[in-house]
Each structure stands twice: as C-alpha cells, then as structure tokens.
Design a protein around this nucleic acid. Sequence first.
DNA 1: TACGACTCGATTGGATCCAATAACAAGATG
DNA 2: CATCTTGTTATTGGATCCAATCGAGTCGTA
Lengths: 220, 220
Amino acid sequence: MASTPRADALASQRIVAGLRAQILAGDLEPGARIRQEDLAERFGASRLPVREALRLLEAEGLVRLVANTGAWVARLSLTECTEAYLIRERLEPLLLAESIPSLSEPAVSELDRLADAMEFADLETFLVLDRQFHMLSFSGAASESLAAQVRRLWNTTQHYRRAFAILVDIQHSHLTHHEHHLMVDAISRRDPQDAEALQALHIRRTRKALVEHPELFDVA
Amino acid sequence: MASTPRADALASQRIVAGLRAQILAGDLEPGARIRQEDLAERFGASRLPVREALRLLEAEGLVRLVANTGAWVARLSLTECTEAYLIRERLEPLLLAESIPSLSEPAVSELDRLADAMEFADLETFLVLDRQFHMLSFSGAASESLAAQVRRLWNTTQHYRRAFAILVDIQHSHLTHHEHHLMVDAISRRDPQDAEALQALHIRRTRKALVEHPELFDVA
DNA sequence: TACGACTCGATTGGATCCAATAACAAGATG
DNA sequence: CATCTTGTTATTGGATCCAATCGAGTCGTA
C-alpha cells in the first residue's frame, strides 16, 4: 500500500513543520533571529531546503525575510493583529455554519467536554484546548482552503493570543467560557445562524479587548 | 535614495512574478505541465530559484506540486471555485467598507469612468478594466494582508472568470454593468453599508451563475 | 568628541554537480 | 493476447562550493 506521496518526505516540509511548531509553542518569540545554518544543522539537512522552508513560512506570515540580510520570527503590530481578527470575524462564522450540519453527535459531545475542561485548565492547557475546541467545531466543513486560511490566521496571531491570555488571566474570565457554552448549545441545536452570530461575537469581543492592551505589541 | 530592498532583485521573485503573469494572462492553462528546466532557461537562472518560485506559487494556489514528479498549473473544481467566491463574498465587502472613507474624489471619478468604459470594451479589455475597477475601489484600505488575500482569490479564479465571461458574453450582460454603476453611486455617497451589500450581491450573483455552468470545470 | 568613510567578517543568494524517485516502454510469461 | 515485471530515461530533490550583499567595528578627520 502506501505510495501516498508523503508530504514530509520532502526535507523542506519537515523543516516547515518543525519550525512552525517551535514558533507556535512560543519557543521562538516574534523578533527572534533565524539563521539558516542553525536550522540546517538542527534538522540534519543542507541550507537549501532551509531556504525553501523560510520562504514558505514567510508566505504563511510566520517569518519575516529581508533580502541578503536574514530571517526573523514575524512580529505583528496592533493594527495588523486587529486586521487578522476582522478577517477571522468574517471567515470563521462562514466555516462554522458549513461545518455544523456535518458534525457528528460524538463530536458535539466532545465540544461540550472541551468547553467544561477549559474552565479548570492552566494557561498552556487552556490554549491547547481552546484551539482544539474551535478546530473541532470547524471539522465538519469540507472547504479545505477556507479552513487552511483560518488556521493561518490562528497561527500568525498565536503569540499575541498567549500574551493576551496571560495578561487578562483568561482562564478565570467567565465571559469566554459563557460564549463557548452558548456555542455548544447552538451547535447541538444545529442552528447555524445562532452559531454564526456567537462566533462573530466571540472574535469581535476579543478584538475590542485586545485594542485595550497596545502594550502587548511594544517592541521589547 | 533607493536602497529600498527591491523585491525583484531576487531571482525567485522575478520568476514568481513572471510565471504568475503568464498564468493570469491565460498563456498557461490549468493542467499545463511546468518543467523546472524550461523556466530556468526562460528566465536565465538556474533551477534553484525556479524551485523556490514554484513552492511560493503553490502556496499562492496557482501551481500544483507533486513530490518527485513535477508541477502543473493549478486546476480548480467547481466546488473549490465556489468556495473561493464564498470567501470573497465575506472579505471584499469588508475591504471595500474600509476603503471608502479614504478614496479620493479623483479616484471616485476614475471608478465612474471605468464603469462606463467596460460597457463598450472587448472581452480581454473588459477583464482588465473589471479588475482595475475593483482593485481601485479597494485601494483606500490600509489592510495589506486582507488586500493580498483578496488578490490571491482573484488570481486563483482568474482562468475560470475568463472562461465564464466568454461563455455568457459578459460584456453584453447588463446586470454586471448595473451593479458596477450602483456601486459607484454608493461609493460616491460614501455609504459603506450600501456598498458592502452591493459588493456581496455582485459576487453572490456571479457565484450562482457559475454553478449553472459546471462544464467550465470539466477536464479537457 | 562626534561624525563619516572604509575595511573585514558573517550571512545569504545562486550555480553546478550528484543521487533518488517516478513515469515510460519493452520484453517475458501466464 | 493480456498482464506483470524489469530496465531505461527523464525529471526532480539535495549537497557542496563560490559570489554578492549587508552589518559591525575601526580608523581617520573635522
């Protein structure tokens, strides 16, 4: 069997995945310098696939490249982050509405469980569960490119979402959990309209809160 | 002056721009094979920047890559094209609304002129003017990543928009021109709500018409 | 002392060469 | 005669080497 052309057979794909994971995990903060040779050594490859990987991650918005100079983990301004949230506010309701009719009952139960679990999780666990919750809620949608675009937006804003979560002690801010529970209800009732409205509200409220903390975007 | 790190100083960027232009112009149709060596020779470079360029264009959605096998101009299914239009239906109204307050009066006049000119243009000219019209209507917006995303969506669907325009003889279908004139009116009145509604209508109507012609997506 | 030019080092960009993979075709065998 | 196998060839993926560019540090001068 097999012979499915494994994507990670290509060195550049392995490096893209690895570096992306490091950035999302917070090991590499925005502004951190990335040297091609370091990456090459770390992944046991030459600099050639590293260069391709960096170009790809730049297209994803996770890396900033300057010709003949170098690469850095991408930094977002408050304006750019707000822009990402405005886009999410339009796209995620669409994706959720498409997903709802196809979500299995077990999936809905799992959403309910995740919404509960998030209330008593520590910060890093909360961030993981929150992402799981929303991605699972989208998982019924067949629109692959829309889903990919939404994932990209989550990725590019990941660092600032973490910083914001720490700042406002988000696990203990009840509003977020209220919204999650209401979304589970709308989804379990298979009501795309309510779900869309809640999803938009969820993102919009966070965006407005974010604007109240411009210090998150100060360069260190 | 200068010293602005010219993007096209990099060979890969030159190749990306050149190949993209060829695909958008229709010189290369979806499904056409792309050989690295041909491109390298055509652009007077080695295969190395060609490979990077192909990876980038794959990220843009214009090229389809298969590991160890080759590259083809990306082909869209009716479903994928519909998906692109659904995304545009959400994003372009947002972009237009942001743009409107910043559009200069001369720009609005130019929009009016373009809407007129389109009515008496041949097909290829229509396609060019139509793109100019909409991009100009977005030009007041500062959201660069949103604008880039919209441009990507236009690019990936370009071939099918041309094929559709030929099929329905779009220069002579009055509905399109009516919508354009109504949009110019809403913009000149600086009415973001009406403009958003019209922009969404414009895209939605085209999407529904597209579904009536699945033969556009048959593999030759 | 402060500013500017210059040199040196480090890092990236590009070209050539080699290895690996996959498609294609011819031949053998049931 | 069809089908599977095998060998050949063309094309892509990767590594090493060389050139170009940018940044930092130093020296000189106003």
